[in-house]
Design a protein around this nucleic acid. Structure first.
Length: 270
DNA sequence: GTAGGATGCTAAC
DNA sequence: TTAGCCTCCTACG
């Protein structure tokens, strides 16, 4: 289940196992069969990621555009590939590896032009070298009455941040999630952005989200480690009604734009 | 066995 | 604002 770090990691992993080689391309589930046939036995020439969008490049200018949505999953394995289950939308296989894609919102063959259109409608991605956070601040955030919590989830404003990073980065900076974007100062935005770059890079390395500073880890504070299916150590995400690691106050949750927001009213007063 | 929820997003009202 | 998409896993009987 994906925020931007997952997608960038997938781009790396697809590249490591499949780039520069021909792949057997199939769609056992059937929804991508015709497109799979077009690129079957062609060479994967690389992968790209922008926010939560993944692009696999075949031949010169054909791309498979993948968006995992909320449920999508990718599973890598070593050859020989087991018989695919009937939910596998896309399988790539070569003599050493296979990879299965299940449950994506999007899996489609697109052109260079269509790919560019996707880049054009996405905001800067903290994990991309070409990201321009200043323009995002000057043109969107500093002019918006929308809450910073909602802006961080808007992929047109900033690409790749999801519900976990949103909640955690606001906690790390002591910022009230309901503050309007226009009240976020330039230094505050720069600090949020820089922190997201660091956190998400670590997320790519570890393939999970950890946001707790070294001095607040379970070991450092003598509390039991978090046990949850998303894996990482966090301050507030999915910790509603539990005590805050720092102030001991109760973590709160609320609906915000159809997603669950988590925050600590005691620590996030700015 | 069933219901419900989840790290997402879009089209339609 | 809501329904819908797509899958997997957990909690609850």
């Amino acid at each position: 289940m994906p925020e931007g770090h997952t997608i960038h990691r997938l781009a790396q992993d697809y590249t490591a196992r499949f780039a520069g080689r021909t792949a057997h391309v199939t769609s056992p589930q059937g929804k991508f069969t015709d497109s799979a046939a077009l690129i079957h036995r062609t060479v994967l020439n690389g992968a790209d990621a922008h926010g939560k969008h993944l692009f696999l490049r075949f031949r010169e200018a054909d791309w498979i555009h993948i968006h995992l949505g909320l449920f999508g999953k990718v599973t890598f394995g070593d050859a020989p590939a087991p018989p695919p289950t009937d939910t596998v939308r896309l399988r790539l296989a070569n003599s050493t590896s296979y990879v299965d894609l299940r449950g994506p919102t999007t899996c489609a063959l697109i052109t260079d032009t269509e790919k560019q259109a996707i880049h054009d409608r996405l905001g800067p991605d903290p994990l991309r070298e070409d990201a321009d956070p200043d323009t995002a601040y000057n043109t969107r955030i500093s002019r918006s009455r929308t809450t910073i919590a909602a802006l961080l989830m808007d992929q047109k404003v900033i690409a790749g941040v999801g519900n976990v990073y949103r909640a955690e980065v606001l906690f790390r900076h002591g910022i009230d999630p309901y503050r309007p974007g226009k009240d976020i100062t330039a230094p505050e935005w720069n600090a949020l952005w820089t922190d997201l770059v660091d956190l998400m890079r670590e997320g790519v390395r570890n393939n999970r989200i950890d946001t707790v500073r070294p001095e607040h880890t379970p070991e450092a504070m003598g509390r039991p480690p978090r046990v949850d299916d998303h894996g990482g150590e966090v301050y507030v995400y999915r910790r509603a009604t539990m005590p805050c690691h720092l102030c001991g106050g109760e973590i709160r949750t609320a609906d915000l734009a159809a997603r669950n927001l988590f925050w600590c009213p005691g620590c996030q007063r700015k």
